[in-house]
């Protein structure tokens, strides 16, 4: 028995798995020392990405079947994506302030956009679809 339309579920599921895999791969890269300036080595930051990945990926099955359980994990994942995406955006803001104060050599640029920010942007379309599916849900 599906709780919502499985057609939507399928689209959602595919997108979610792709997003989850992205998080997983980049999370692992960050844990194991990073790669270049864009993906710095960051043990716990990488761990957080892997947790987000797990939340999405565990939910995929339920999403494909149109179950609330899956949708919950998807929304939980989106919540975590937002927490970390906004967090790193704020950090860029703080870096910008540091530049204005003369404490940093250069203004933060594109290279400082951590994967968590890119993926947060990539997760936004899911927010729209999830919002449509949860329109009638109350607290």
């Amino acid at each position: 028995m599906a709780d919502f339309d499985t057609g939507t579920g399928k689209t959602l599921g595919i997108y979610t798995s792709a997003l989850g895999l992205l998080y997983l791969v980049f999370g692992l890269i960050e844990i194991f020392g990073g790669s270049g300036e864009q993906v710095p080595g960051d043990l716990f930051g990488g761990f957080a990405l892997v947790v987000i990945a797990a939340t999405y990926l565990i939910g995929v099955k339920g999403v494909l079947r149109g179950r609330h359980q899956g949708l919950s994990l998807l929304i939980g994942g989106l919540f975590l994506s937002a927490v970390f995406g906004v967090l790193y955006l704020l950090i860029i803001g703080a870096d910008g302030l540091m530049y204005l104060l003369g404490e940093a050599e250069e203004l933060p640029g594109l290279v400082d956009l951590r994967p968590a920010i890119w993926f947060f942007i990539l997760s936004l379309p899911l927010v729209y679809t999830a919002r449509k599916l949860t329109k009638r849900i109350t607290w």
Binding site: T55, H68, S72, G77
Partner: peptide, 8 residues
């Protein structure tokens, strides 16, 4: 929503 967040 409470159910959903608790599930996670």
């Amino acid at each position: 929503y409470t159910d959903m967040f608790d599930h996670v």
